[in-house]
């Protein structure tokens, strides 16, 4: 159906869902019932941002060692998207979206669950429009979740540096 195709092209493109998720993360930075709650949210935002960085690094390393062709390279598929030239496994979009969602989930369960919904939607759309296999999505999601856990570990190891950064930002009225 053309309307479903258009919807999937919208949510599966490189910007829509990820930009929306990043805006939710930006909102979360300024949100919180009280200063303690806000600080928890801000730590979650740090975790998500570092997690996204780690997830991109994991995807780049995987791409360097394993060049899996895209589904449209092997099969006759009705492609609803442009032809990406980078390797299919793991999905960069899924890795980034799940790194965002799980990074936030580690600090704020409610918003984390909410962000998982667009992460699943974007991942499903990438398969629907013909640019990924489901296994690429699974690999991307695992990369994103483990990157966020790694980010949480890094933040704990480097304590009190994250606390100092937050305190400095608070002094400059940015947090």
């Amino acid at each position: 159906m053309p309307i479903i195709d258009r919807f999937m092209r919208l949510v599966g493109n490189d910007y829509f869902i990820l930009t929306g998720m990043a805006l939710v993360v930006f909102t979360l930075w300024f949100s919180g019932r009280d200063p303690e709650h806000r600080e928890r949210n801000q730590r979650a935002v740090w975790c998500a941002l570092i997690g996204v960085g780690f997830a991109c690094a994991v995807v780049a390393i995987c791409n360097a060692f394993y060049d899996r062709p895209r589904p449209f390279d092997r099969y006759e598929v009705e492609l609803l998207f442009y032809r990406p030239t980078d390797p299919s496994f793991p999905s960069n979009t899924a890795a980034t979206a799940f790194a965002f969602a799980s990074g936030i989930w580690l600090g704020n369960r409610t918003v984390g669950w909410l962000l998982l919904l667009p992460a699943f939607l974007a991942s499903f759309a990438r398969v629907f429009i013909g640019v990924h296999y489901p296994f690429d999505i699974l690999g991307g999601a695992l990369a994103g979740i483990s990157a966020s856990l790694g980010a949480l570990l890094v933040l704990r190891i480097f304590e009190p540096f994250p606390t100092w950064v937050l305190k400095t930002m608070r002094k400059l009225y940015l947090a």
Binding site: R9, N13, D14, Y15, F16, L18, C56, L80, F81, Y82, P84, T85, N92, T96
Partner: peptide
Amino acid sequence: RCVPGLEGSEV
């Protein structure tokens, strides 16, 4: 916007 464009780092 379903066209090749910006890299992840640029975004």
